[in-house]
Every structure is written in C-alpha cells, then in structure tokens.
C-alpha cells in the first residue's frame, strides 16, 4: 500500500508522439515476448494432443489397427504423404503390418452446422467397418443421436456400400446396404448417410486404382 500515496499520475499536458509510440512499442514488445515464450512451451503439447486425438479416432474406426499412414490424391492416383496437414485418407495396418483398410474423413452440412466424421472402409469386402463423429453441433437430445444412439452407430460396424447406402425407416431394413434412420433425427441421419455415399464415390476410384497396382500394401 506504500505506493498509494507517493505516485501521483503525471499529468503531462501533451506528451509528444515519441512518447506515445514508445509506450505502445514497449507494451507490444513485452506482449510479444510473453506470447512467444508461452507458444514455445505449449505448441509441442498441443500438437501431441491433436495427434493423440487423431490416433484414437483412427484406432476406433479400424478395429485391430496398430499403425497408420496418410495417403493423398496425387497426379497418378493415391500417394503416400509425408506431411500431416494435407487432406487425405489413412491406411491402417495391424501389428503384423498387414493392411486392414482405410480411415476416411468426411464432412457434410447437417441440421445445424457441418458434421465431421471419420469412418473405416475395407475395400476388399466393400464394407464400412467403423464410424466416429469428430465434430457436430446437432441438437442435443435429437440430432446428436447420430453418435449417441447405439442401434444407429452399430449399423456401421459392418455395412455393405454397394451400389449405395440407403436410408430406410426404423424396422424396415431388409438388405445389407440399408441403414435405419433415427426417429426424431431423420435429417441428421440422412445427412450422415449422404455424406458417406458422397465421400465413398470421391475416393472409390483412386482407392481401387491403388489396390490394383499394389495388391497388398504393407508397411
């Protein structure tokens, strides 16, 4: 409290522009210094978190997956990519290095906002083998059933995708390429199914092309 009495605000009538720039510059300098220090400390941690989140999601949609690598669309079909920032698909391998399938990210506008998912695709049996919602702002209690309703998510454990995935009403499923929509969340469930169809048709040819030339991709 000692400072309370002896510091009186210095009421200089018109400080020169040098003083204005100097004080702003000082504030900017120290703020930059602090930010860089915190950035250097946090950025490896943040990167680690993101990597862990991606890894957990891939392991969830590709059962028995032990390692993965990123493939992107190149001029001559699928190519291995070194950087991790590019948009692509992840090839997953089990612990013996045998190829299991691809984990493919996809997005589509749902009821409220964009829904982002990651799904596992086994090109050999042409089935979807896993499904995980990464980001969604769908209405809690209704639209969020696309990742909370177990019957719905269960359908994606083994789902035939040829010729296309079809949406049917609850209790009307008769073929292996059909998914029952959720009552009260029809739009959200249809958005998910549309997204899977669109994403598959986008990647199908390049995946097939790649598998033809490299019969058994191994690590």
């Amino acid at each position: 409290m000692a400072t309370a009495n002896n510091i009186l605000p210095t009421q200089a009538p018109e400080p020169g522009s040098f003083r204005l720039i100097f004080s702003l510059g000082t504030a900017g300098f120290f703020s930059g210094l602090l930010l860089v220090v915190v950035f250097l400390y946090t950025s490896p941690l943040i990167e680690e978190n993101q990597k862990k989140a991606l890894q957990t999601a891939i392991f969830k949609v590709l059962p028995d997956c032990a390692s993965f690598e990123l493939f992107v669309k190149g001029p001559s079909g699928l190519e291995r990519s070194i950087s991790t920032d590019e948009k692509g698909v992840f090839a997953g391998y089990d612990k013996n290095g045998t190829f299991i399938g691809f984990a493919i990210p996809a997005e589509e506008s749902g009821f409220q906002d964009i829904i982002k998912v990651l799904y596992g695709y086994d090109p050999e049996s042409e089935r979807i083998i896993g499904f995980e919602v990464l980001e969604s702002k769908e209405t809690p209690g209704l639209g969020d059933k696309i990742f909370k309703d177990e019957e719905f998510t269960e359908a994606f454990r083994s789902l035939v995708v040829q010729p296309i995935i079809e949406a049917v009403k609850k209790g009307k499923k008769s073929r292996e390429n059909q998914v029952e929509t959720i009552t009260g969340a029809t739009i959200s469930s249809k958005a998910v199914i549309n997204m899977l169809n669109n994403s598959l048709s986008e990647w199908e040819s390049s995946i097939d092309g790649y598998l033809e030339t490299n019969t058994e991709p191994t690590r």
């Binding site: 702003l24 504030a27 703020s31 930010l35 400390y41 941690l45």
Partner: peptide
C-alpha cells in the same frame, strides 16, 4: 489501445494453455 494489447496478450496465453492442458 495499450489496455487491449495487454488483455489480448493474456487471452492468447490462456487460450494456448487451455489447449495444451
């Protein structure tokens, strides 16, 4: 302006710390 620079600095710090922890 100075206040905003100071505030924005601490907000960025807290943003990065939360993302890390």
């Amino acid at each position: 302006t100075t206040f905003i620079v100071i505030i924005a600095t601490f907000v960025t710090v807290v943003d990065m710390l939360l993302a890390a922890w």
